[in-house]
Design a protein around this nucleic acid. Structure first.
Lengths: 240, 240
DNA sequence: AGTAATCGTTACCATAAGTAACATGACGGG
DNA sequence: CCCGTCATGTTACTTATGGTAACGATTACT
């Protein structure tokens, strides 16, 4: 794009401002998208987003590849806060349970305050995407990965098998997510109650892993999981 | 023999065969939809489903209110097996851990054998629906509810607070679901390993609830949550 | 046979994603 | 001072798909 010195039009004034300006613009559009989502719900049309941004549709497509790309950007921004909290907590020397509690609390607070945005982000509406580029998966992976890394280090330092850390992280994220989803519709608990309950569960599962030395084989070695010959439910194909 | 008693057109011969036949037909269409989903992925168009069923689109709409309705029917059928297993297990006197293990295993086997169908069912594509009628929510609620019932009974029989059973069930379902989702893409564990790991986690969380008397308040009452954990878990500083 | 209900089809409409082509305004050079 | 180029914007279109309307054919009972 920078037509070098050789030709009549060497470089024009494209070097500076451009990129920075574009990023700024992109961010503004993402903000507009968020406003539109809050107003119209998770199924906003691109037209509505454009209108909210005060421009017309093709502008959006100048800055975002497609709706999924915008979705990704919104998702990134929305979860940025959560990630920031998480990473901040990582540096601190706070005890891990408090850290975990704070993470859960941040998440619940977010989905409580931004239910529409939450639905847009978490309820993946773009199942067609390659899943490796799925923004939710990506973000969950980021959080899970961060949790898993810490946890794995901890396991290793205790001489335990760290292979399960990632599994634990993913499962834990899903646990909180599903519980939060349910909670939004059936508010029979206060946020604090749910938060402590989830913390208790997550911590209990962590406890179990640690006690088992990081491997279920060790946990259930002494007592077989199927004491009486329970039928092997999964033996055959599911056949519907 | 039908037309006489009251008016010229009393009821016709709509009583028998009709309903039964329609249900049969509906089931056949659901089967076709499943085949189409396996072939085309979770984003099948109604046209493709109709083609697979050997009919044309309006036929589908004669049997299903809209795509969400079909989605619900597919979801019901697909999870029917799992629910059956679960409910059968309810009657049996199998120890709850084996039951839980079997449920997890059944789920994992299903998503392993039917990844496309799984994506269609679990990755909710119909975020616009009233959520109270969302098929996934409905199904998850069914399973969660059944699980919750079991453990609520157990909790009560131990004289503990059963109010958290539902929370536990929802969280547990989400845990398994998210872990399974991740596992499908990052197959670093065998199914058996993941199953036992998840069982360990779920059981550990249940354990924590039982030991806390069903309420996090009791678990964390004696000590502020910001301090290091009290239970045996906290033998060492488990900083994640 | 005639009447009516079920079963089926083709052809259409509405919405929303994504694109092409065109319009406007600022800056630098002849 | 006018002109070309780049950035920015708009209108108007295409395409895909969920959903529907109107119409045709088959079956069965009186």
């Amino acid at each position: 794009m920078t037509g070098d010195d050789a030709a009549v039009k060497p470089v024009r004034r494209s070097p500076a401002s451009r990129s920075g300006h574009r990023e700024q613009r992109r961010a503004a559009l993402v903000q507009a998208a968020m406003r539109a989502i809050r107003q119209h719900g998770p199924d906003v049309a691109m037209d509505d987003i454009a209108t909210e941004a005060g421009v017309s549709k093709p502008i959006l497509y100048r800055h975002f590849l497609d709706k999924g790309d915008l979705y990704m950007a919104v998702s990134d921004t929305a979860t940025g806060q959560l990630r920031a909290v998480l990473l901040t907590g990582l540096d601190s020397e706070a005890d891990p349970r408090s850290l975990l509690r704070a993470v859960i609390d941040t998440y619940l607070t977010f989905i409580e305050q931004e239910p529409e945005l939450y639905r847009f982000v978490v309820r993946r509406s773009f199942t067609d995407r390659p899943s490796t580029r799925d923004p939710v998966t990506t973000n969950a992976a980021l959080i899970s990965g961060a949790l898993a890394t810490i946890f794995a280090d901890r396991l290793r330092s205790l001489g335990l098998d760290s292979g399960g850390a990632q599994t634990w992280a993913h499962a834990g994220v899903g646990m909180v997510q599903a519980a939060g989803d349910w909670w939004l519709q059936d508010r029979t608990l206060s946020r604090e109650q749910l938060r402590d309950y989830l913390l208790m569960m997550a911590w209990g599962s962590l406890d179990a892993i640690l006690q088992a030395g990081g491997s279920p084989a060790r946990m259930f070695a002494s007592q077989p999981p199927t004491e009486k010959p329970t039928r092997r439910l999964s033996a055959g194909p599911i056949s519907m």
